[in-house]
Amino acid sequence: MQRQLDVGLLPEAALDAATAFMALHLEAARTLLADPATTALAIVLPPAPYDHRDWRLALARDLAREATPRRVNVVAGPPGESLAASLRFLASAPGLTGQYLVCHDSARADERASQA
């Protein structure tokens, strides 16, 4: 069973966000992974600028290695169909682990494109 850890707000600066996640959410992730019913964990983070990519990818890779054979993936994006579709995909992809996926709200992207 894929479990989901939803992380709300994080600080804007990448170093501060990484520190906040490790201090406030890492133990919750490990607790979910310790449950024998958990086969996979999807950590859902809020959207962030590109400079957050490194720490988020390291989180996905390192926690996946630590949790083997359980799967761990990190998904970032606003609530909506894109995020939901990504979570459904991960739940049905038994070989996918240690990945960082960024979801974009397609309705907002279409809106921005039409304003250009």
Results as ranks from 00 to 15, higher is better:
residue 36 P to F: 06
residue 17 A to P: 00
residue 29 A to H: 07
residue 103 C to V: 06
residue 32 L to W: 02
residue 110 D to Y: 01
residue 48 A to D: 09
residue 99 Q to R: 15
residue 49 P to N: 03
residue 7 V to C: 07
residue 38 T to C: 15
residue 91 A to D: 14
residue 96 L to N: 02
residue 91 A to E: 13
residue 48 A to P: 05
residue 11 P to W: 04
residue 113 A to W: 01
residue 94 P to D: 06
residue 64 A to Q: 05
residue 23 A to M: 03
residue 5 L to E: 09
residue 24 L to F: 06
residue 111 E to S: 08
residue 5 L to F: 12
residue 68 T to K: 09
residue 48 A to N: 06
residue 21 F to P: 00
residue 22 M to G: 01
residue 41 L to Y: 07
residue 49 P to D: 09
residue 79 P to G: 08
residue 13 A to N: 02
residue 72 V to D: 08
residue 42 A to N: 15
residue 50 Y to F: 11
residue 80 G to S: 04
residue 18 A to M: 01
residue 32 L to A: 13
residue 34 A to L: 11
residue 54 D to K: 12
residue 47 P to R: 04
residue 15 L to C: 00
residue 6 D to V: 12
residue 51 D to W: 04
residue 86 S to A: 15
residue 107 A to V: 06
residue 37 A to Y: 01
residue 69 P to E: 08
residue 31 T to M: 10
residue 103 C to M: 05
residue 25 H to D: 04
residue 62 D to L: 10
residue 86 S to H: 06
residue 112 R to A: 14
residue 43 I to Y: 02
residue 12 E to G: 08
residue 20 A to N: 02
residue 33 L to V: 11
residue 42 A to C: 15
residue 40 A to I: 02
residue 39 T to R: 15
residue 19 T to A: 10
residue 44 V to E: 05
residue 28 A to N: 10
residue 27 E to T: 13
residue 27 E to I: 08
residue 66 E to I: 11
residue 11 P to K: 06
residue 47 P to A: 12
residue 80 G to W: 01
residue 87 L to Q: 08
residue 83 L to Q: 06
residue 6 D to H: 12
residue 81 E to G: 07
residue 98 G to P: 03
residue 46 P to I: 09
residue 23 A to G: 00
residue 103 C to H: 02
residue 98 G to W: 04
residue 44 V to C: 12
residue 115 Q to K: 15
residue 54 D to A: 14
residue 91 A to W: 01
residue 7 V to N: 07
residue 113 A to M: 03
residue 83 L to V: 09
residue 25 H to G: 03
residue 20 A to T: 10
residue 81 E to A: 14
residue 110 D to P: 00
residue 64 A to W: 05
residue 99 Q to M: 03
residue 13 A to Q: 10
residue 54 D to E: 13
residue 10 L to T: 12
residue 99 Q to T: 11
residue 70 R to K: 15
residue 78 P to W: 07
residue 29 A to Y: 04
residue 31 T to I: 14
residue 88 R to S: 12
residue 90 L to F: 05
residue 16 D to S: 12
residue 22 M to D: 08
residue 115 Q to G: 13
residue 83 L to G: 05
residue 34 A to V: 15
residue 12 E to F: 02
residue 5 L to K: 07
residue 104 H to I: 09
residue 84 A to P: 00
residue 33 L to M: 07
residue 71 R to L: 09
residue 6 D to T: 10
residue 30 R to D: 13
residue 5 L to G: 13
residue 115 Q to R: 15
residue 105 D to A: 11
residue 17 A to Y: 02
residue 30 R to E: 15
residue 87 L to P: 03
residue 79 P to C: 07
residue 59 L to A: 04
residue 32 L to Y: 03
residue 40 A to H: 11
residue 106 S to K: 03
residue 71 R to K: 12
residue 37 A to T: 14
residue 23 A to V: 05
residue 101 L to K: 05
residue 75 V to W: 04
residue 9 L to H: 15
residue 15 L to V: 00
residue 91 A to I: 10
residue 92 S to V: 09
residue 28 A to W: 01
residue 33 L to D: 11
residue 31 T to F: 11
residue 24 L to Q: 13
residue 114 S to T: 14
residue 38 T to P: 15
residue 39 T to L: 14
residue 62 D to C: 06
residue 65 R to F: 08
residue 53 R to H: 12
residue 55 W to S: 11
residue 78 P to E: 14
residue 29 A to Q: 06
residue 104 H to S: 13
residue 82 S to P: 14
residue 33 L to R: 07
residue 88 R to M: 10
residue 10 L to W: 02
residue 16 D to M: 04
residue 103 C to I: 03
residue 67 A to L: 07
